[in-house]
């Protein structure tokens, strides 16, 4: 099996889904001839033709909106938003329309669409190109939110998202598009959309996160191991619906946890996990829940972005604080 980058795994899953299901369409800005600004849709136009790979006008709200119309007509549109900073104008369509169509028609119409986009910083991109806005979507009932952090998970989860009968917001860690590489079998096997991934088992502390920061969590776990502490590493990957059971079970074993995300702290999705740990998980805690997140500031331009994005050192510091308790 060849080793491929995360963005190539996205491409592989798109091609697979389009091959197996003629109702799958890819649309968005520059997804056709250009193959997407990150090349996620590279080659699809040649393989599947202009009726299945559509270069749209530059209109994000309408890209989401026409996807709702297509999905109601039994197509499975996979729409690309070029950067998460440009996705906010789709929220009206995703919140008021896509996420509700099944409910408000009592199942008469449904919306099997995927809205995929790169998210997060760390690639020295221009302003508005490095946003981590997952929490804007996780508070929308009727929507699934997925955020893989490895090529295999990107492949399997994107296949699952496309095959899912309901709308999915699919976030792709920009920082790992090329940096994360592994061998990926193009076997058409989807991964479950409601399960966390335990990437490393450990009994002393649980590191919980999603997106590009998962790589930093794994690096932190290596460092902790060198210090004699075994960290369990959980990639949440499917934020909504949240697999609380896996998280609670892990923290029940370790008694300690660090929740990590690149998005800002306040009302970030980590707060939901912390709240669950403070509820059903409270009596298993041996130390306060730690959160390592982006600051509650505007995402800075590239010169300061790596001081905004929490790295291995901040994760380690939080883990050590937690391990000192009790």
């Amino acid at each position: 099996m060849p080793e491929i980058a995360l963005v190539e795994a996205i491409n592989l899953a798109l091609a697979r889904a389009m091959t197996e299901d003629a109702s799958v369409l890819v649309l968005g800005e520059d997804v056709g001839r250009d193959g997407g600004v990150f090349r996620a849709t590279d080659g699809l136009l040649t393989r599947f033709g202009p009726e299945r790979v559509l270069d749209t006008p530059l209109a994000e709200a309408a890209i989401a909106g026409i996807s709702v119309g297509l999905a109601a007509q039994r197509f499975r549109p996979v729409a690309e938003i070029q950067f998460m900073g440009f996705a906010y104008s789709t929220i009206d369509q995703m919140l008021n329309q896509a996420a509700r169509l099944r409910t408000r028609t009592r199942g008469r119409l449904s919306c099997p669409m995927v809205l995929r986009m790169p998210a997060g910083g760390g690639v020295h991109a221009p302003e508005h190109h490095s946003e981590s806005g997952e929490a804007c979507f996780t508070n929308i009932p009727g929507l699934r939110v997925v955020y893989p952090s490895s090529p295999r998970r990107a492949y399997g989860l994107l296949l699952a998202a496309i095959r899912d009968p309901d709308p999915v917001v699919f976030l792709e860690p920009t920082r790992l598009y090329r940096a994360a590489r592994e061998d990926v079998a193009d076997d058409g096997v989807a991964l479950p959309l409601d399960r966390c991934f335990t990437l490393r088992e450990g009994s002393d502390i649980t590191l919980i996160g999603w997106g590009a920061i998962v790589r930093d969590m794994l690096a932190a776990a290596d460092r902790l191991a060198a210090e004699g502490k075994q960290a369990e590493v959980i990639d949440v990957a499917t934020l909504v619906p949240l697999d609380s059971a896996s998280i609670l079970a892990s923290v029940a074993r370790t008694g300690r946890c660090v929740i990590c995300h690149e998005a800002p702290l306040t009302a970030g999705f980590g707060a939901e996990i912390a709240a669950q740990l403070a509820g059903p998980g409270l009596l298993s805690l041996l130390a306060p829940v730690e959160r390592v997140t982006g600051w509650d500031t505007v995402m800075p331009l590239p010169r300061l972005e790596m001081q905004y994005i929490p790295g291995v050192e901040r994760i380690l510091a939080a883990a050590r604080r937690s391990l000192q308790h009790g």
């Binding site: 909106g65 709702v68 119309g69 297509l70 109601a72 007509q73 549109p77 329309q97 009592r106 119409l109």
Partner: peptide
């Protein structure tokens, strides 16, 4: 909004103009 008659017609759009791109999407499907 679960019309027994025109099964493919959209439900009433309360948000103003939000259904305009849906009409484009339905037309694209056709």
């Amino acid at each position: 909004s679960d019309f027994a008659g025109p099964r493919e017609d959209f439900p009433i759009s309360v948000p103003v103009a939000a259904h305009a791109p849906h009409a484009a999407g339905v037309a694209l499907a056709f």
